[in-house]
Amino acid sequence: MSIRDDIIASRIPARAFIAMGMFWGVFGAYVPWIKAQAGLNDADFGLALLFGAAGAVGAMWIAPKVDRGLGAYAMVGGAVAMVAAFILPGLANSWAFFALAMLLAMGTSGLLDVIMNARLSGIEVEAGRSLMNLNHALYSFSYGVAAIGAGLMREAGIPPIVCFALIGLGTLIVTPGLRHEDKISNSDEAGTRHGFGLSKPLLICAGLVTLIGFMAEQATEGWSALHLERSLGVGAAEGAMGPAILGFTMGIGRLTGQVLTRFVSEGRALQGAGALAALGAVLAAWAPTPALVYMGFAVIGFGVSITAPMTLVWIAKTLPAGQRSLAISRVVLVGYTGFFIGPPLMGFLAQAFGLPMAFTILGALLALIAIVLVPALRFFARGGQPVQT
């Protein structure tokens, strides 16, 4: 099957992936403006994002019920809610306003994220082929395009509310096309929903790998522009290139992830990805020129791009078929926690030690994937079905 066939097969949820990527791309590019507009220091900004992260985790917890309740209109409802919520960060002029805005923006984003990934998984089963890497790549590419466009608009003095409104209008236009009937039955989940026989240490290690990967992705998206502008004194457009480069390299990494597994095992790929991303974080932290910092962000993006999908593939190959769905859902829930705690954690570290040291600590966490977590996964995987890792 060609990429064109895969795009056609997943065209409905793909619109949601693209829309979400564009909203977060605009946010990443406008972080310095929004932060200054609300009068926040690094710790205040990080605390507000942590407040928003709590909303995201709560929304993800109830997302399956919302998905079932709204049925075919679940992605439509999630997209409309996300559009309304993302208007607010562009208007924030105080910590309380910004914290509330991020609670709603991250909450609706987390809700739609779970729903669109669940619907995509159903389409994968129906189509009989993998579509996850492609759609996550679409998210990354749309994030990069939006970050560049938003950076140019910020350079021209256009306020964030205008950019968010334009993305919102475009999303609302395609929203009717997000209606999707889930044809995959959930009847086979009944026997495994209690999690009997699942290896908790295995799931914890897998969850930590995805958590660190998502945490590094979101921390870099949220703080790369600030690091470039504050540490190296570049302009708004040059600063926006940080999150844009991350998005593009993550898209390329995700497209190549499927090919990579034909030549190396999941374990070796994850160790290489963790080590590569760690080196990229250290380079981005201490490089003396913008070009080298851009290179560091590119290396981070390419490395972290495969951590989540490669871990999920490994879990699926290790566990019996009856346990895979529940195991993957638990790993994803732990992983997406990192997606939302990354930016606030960077805020606290930046306030305490400065952004270069914050990126260095992020690199140390990424190195744990290669040094500690993958060997632990190999050890605990021996209790499941034999798999070469």
Rank of each mutant, 00 (worst) to 15 (best):
59 A>L: 09
214 F>V: 09
248 F>V: 14
15 R>H: 11
119 R>W: 02
346 M>R: 11
246 L>Y: 00
48 A>E: 02
251 G>P: 00
193 R>Q: 14
355 L>E: 07
37 Q>T: 02
243 P>N: 11
327 A>M: 12
77 G>Y: 03
292 L>E: 00
125 V>H: 14
308 A>I: 10
325 S>L: 12
186 N>C: 00
40 L>E: 01
189 E>G: 00
23 F>E: 00
97 F>K: 03
329 S>P: 06
235 G>V: 11
118 A>L: 11
185 S>M: 08
99 A>K: 12
380 F>W: 14
35 K>I: 08
197 G>E: 13
185 S>C: 06
342 G>Y: 04
206 A>I: 10
329 S>K: 07
243 P>C: 12
373 L>E: 11
225 A>P: 07
166 L>H: 00
169 L>S: 09
92 A>E: 04
265 S>I: 03
303 G>M: 13
11 R>H: 12
229 E>V: 12
81 A>H: 01
166 L>P: 00
12 I>N: 01
303 G>A: 10
384 G>N: 12
385 Q>F: 01
187 S>D: 15
104 L>M: 13
371 I>V: 15
148 I>P: 01
298 A>C: 07
282 V>K: 11
248 F>K: 09
270 L>M: 15
28 G>C: 07
43 A>S: 10
25 G>K: 10
295 M>H: 00
31 V>I: 15
348 F>V: 14
51 F>P: 00
232 L>V: 09
388 Q>H: 11
127 A>I: 05
50 L>K: 04
284 A>P: 04
330 R>A: 06
288 P>Y: 03
349 L>V: 02
320 P>I: 12
23 F>N: 03
147 A>G: 08
170 G>W: 13
154 R>N: 10
307 T>D: 01
11 R>D: 04
352 A>P: 03
58 G>Y: 09
161 I>W: 08
234 V>L: 05
49 L>P: 01
159 P>V: 14
262 R>V: 03
257 G>N: 02
188 D>K: 14
318 T>F: 03
231 S>R: 10
208 L>G: 09
318 T>D: 02
357 M>S: 12
338 G>A: 12
40 L>M: 12
287 A>L: 09
225 A>Y: 02
279 L>H: 04
233 G>W: 05
327 A>E: 10
365 L>K: 02
5 D>Y: 07
386 P>G: 06
358 A>H: 05
